[in-house]
């Protein structure tokens, strides 16, 4: 028996999962506050539509598809882990990491183009929100990829398989944030 508490009889769920739910709860407030502020300003300024018109809808849509697909591989990794197949779970987590890399690559091209034609974080408040919200989200993607790599390394050896579900939960939340960022930044024009 390892000297750690891995279950909570009161909550009825493993401690790790409870901790991830707490993280997600705090993330809801962080992203909710940021996006709520954006919505306030956006509603107060119809003219922001002229700025939003310059974001690349197809790039945003493609990235949404990439994140949805990476969420699929993350949940399939969870399924494999729950069936005790660590190797398969690790491979699927690897596919999820690739999805994150594709997402960031598209983002890099998008930002490079936008910055090169003069839309920078200081151009005006729309672009400040655009880079802050998408940037904070991008940092979460990077963090998820790193943690997923660590979890996949263990899972490939059949160790700590419960963590596959935990990083999956986090990844689905990151996907969920993008589901709202996409219409806010790319569609509402």
């Amino acid at each position: 028996m390892r000297p750690i508490a891995n279950t909570r009889s009161v909550t009825g769920i493993p401690t790790g999962r409870l901790a991830v739910w707490w993280i997600i709860v705090s993330e809801i407030v962080i992203f909710g506050g940021l996006l709520g502020s954006y919505v306030m300003y956006r509603l107060a300024h119809d003219s922001w539509a002229n700025q939003a018109a310059h974001t690349n809808t197809m790039a945003g849509a493609f990235n949404t598809l990439v994140l949805l697909t990476s969420s699929l591989s993350a949940v399939l990794a969870h399924k494999a882990a729950s069936e005790g197949d660590g190797k398969k779970a690790a491979k699927l987590l690897g596919a999820t990491i690739c999805g994150g890399a594709v997402f960031l690559t598209v983002k890099a091209f998008e930002w490079t183009h936008e910055i090169s034609i003069g839309y920078t974080i200081t151009s005006n408040t729309f672009w400040s929100f655009y880079y802050t919200a998408a940037g904070l989200h991008g940092l979460h993607v990077i963090a998820g990829m790193i943690i997923m790599g660590i979890v996949a390394k263990d899972a490939a050896k059949g160790r700590e398989l419960h963590r596959v579900e935990l990083i999956g939960l986090y990844w689905h939340f990151v996907d969920l944030v993008w589901i709202f960022l996409f219409p806010l930044l790319y569609i509402a024009k």
Partner: peptide, 12 residues
């Protein structure tokens, strides 16, 4: 828990 966080965002 999740709905409480959403509620706080709405309150904000």
């Amino acid at each position: 828990l999740l709905m409480t966080a959403v509620l706080f965002v709405v309150l904000f």
